[in-house]
Nucleic acid binder design. Sequence first.
DNA 1: TGGTATTGTTCGGCTAGACCGAACGGAGTT
DNA 2: AACTCCGTTCGGTCTAGCCGAACAATACCA
Lengths: 272, 272
Amino acid sequence: MTRAPQDGRYRLQGVSRALRLLDILADASADGLSVTEAAAQLEASKSTTFGLLQTLMAFNYVTDQTPGPRYRLGPAVLHLADAHTRTVPFMETVRPIARALTEATGWTSRVAIHDGGYPVFIDRVDGPGTIRFYTPLGVRELPHRSSAGKAILAELDESVVLAIAAETGLPRSTAHTITDVTSLLADLALCRSRGFAVDDEEDDDGVLCVGAAFGGRDGAPAGAVSITGLKAEVPDWKVHELGLVVRAHADQMALAIGGQRWRAEPSAVRSK
Amino acid sequence: MTRAPQDGRYRLQGVSRALRLLDILADASADGLSVTEAAAQLEASKSTTFGLLQTLMAFNYVTDQTPGPRYRLGPAVLHLADAHTRTVPFMETVRPIARALTEATGWTSRVAIHDGGYPVFIDRVDGPGTIRFYTPLGVRELPHRSSAGKAILAELDESVVLAIAAETGLPRSTAHTITDVTSLLADLALCRSRGFAVDDEEDDDGVLCVGAAFGGRDGAPAGAVSITGLKAEVPDWKVHELGLVVRAHADQMALAIGGQRWRAEPSAVRSK
DNA sequence: TGGTATTGTTCGGCTAGACCGAACGGAGTT
DNA sequence: AACTCCGTTCGGTCTAGCCGAACAATACCA
């Protein structure tokens, strides 16, 4: 049997539009969208959008909000996420550890799984503070400007890193974003030697992240944990301390999923 | 503007199939389904199913699992659920209270929102024990055989209850299920007088649930909390005690969302 | 190792069904 | 009361989804 098609050759128009519509609704404000608004964002006719919404509504993926029909995501999406959580094996074992990490540091912690060199955040535990970081779950993030992403990249072969760098082009989002491959590789080497990655305002100004990867049974990185907070909150020398705490929790996660602990260089796991 | 269409008149075939496929994948085992298996359950041709899967995969709603391509739900569903949680206003305020309820009782607690007389469970906090109850989130449950459902029904007008009874037919699932309207109404009256509902092996043999509704700003029931455990674990006289604990937490939820506290009969809230 | 059964992927034709534009009817506004 | 805007309905057009069948690759078994 031939390998799966890489391009979007078999992409069905109607279904694609429905899924895009769901994403649009997900990113909409809490009180939903009207048909007209949704149609505008979807770039489809009002009647088409209406049909899509009615179909999604029949399956409870979308709810009608009176008055003046405004459409929001419906409870059926919870069913999917709930089922997904059951299928991702370590979701449930890893969550308490993430909670412990947030308790230990007071910062928002997040868990990402490793998806072909990219991090996909699958869980978030908000810290006790009043500030919240807008961090959507379930989307493939760019690896070069997040601590979890760099932690994962650090465990991968250089060729994979180069391929990803070529693919994404390392786009900049702040003045501190690493945008050239040489610096990225150097930073990844640093990650490997100390056991954790640091995102120092590389994705958002004023925001600091510290992350560490954990390996699966086969030695390849299974995912990463990271904590996020305001850079102003911690002096530089404390970052290393936080790194060790994150590293320790990542090790716990590795242990919990029956994977391998991180080992210091030069014997660090670097298998593809 | 005319009211929304009640029937599935505008249901699009392709989108419907995609959504049904997602549901099928959600109910599948942890290691996913092959194209052939999915096609069989979907009752569509293999090529059609393949196209649907490819489209869903392009949007990360479905992941390909090597070897021997098996398809599972992808991380994009988390994005939807995460967004949904933000749009349901009280999701975040109510969750800690549910956690407290589980801590106080040691039982699994669940939160349902009220959707036209039916409960839709939107959150679950598992107890510390090793047994887990299979309780999918995000689906409309039948109200007559769950404590959360009965707690909600008890706050509604008798005409609504009769309409739902006629609609669903009160199907039986155990020997203790209430299957006639008269008994149901009597039980609902009991719920109102004591402030909580009991599901005594009415949905699953050996399983006991205790639930209580909480009202929204307008006085109508906004949702309900319930706890679930093994009937063998508690003597009969303790059920009432549990009921009061659940009742207290439901009141906290009402308070947290700015709604109305439950009041004892005869002034109990019974608005539509 | 070779043969067979099964599964995943591709392709092309047919027609069902998705898409759009336009019209209808409430609701809110000035 | 007239106007405007929005949600819903409807029918025609033609695209694009659906299927069946062929192909390729793997798994199973002897």
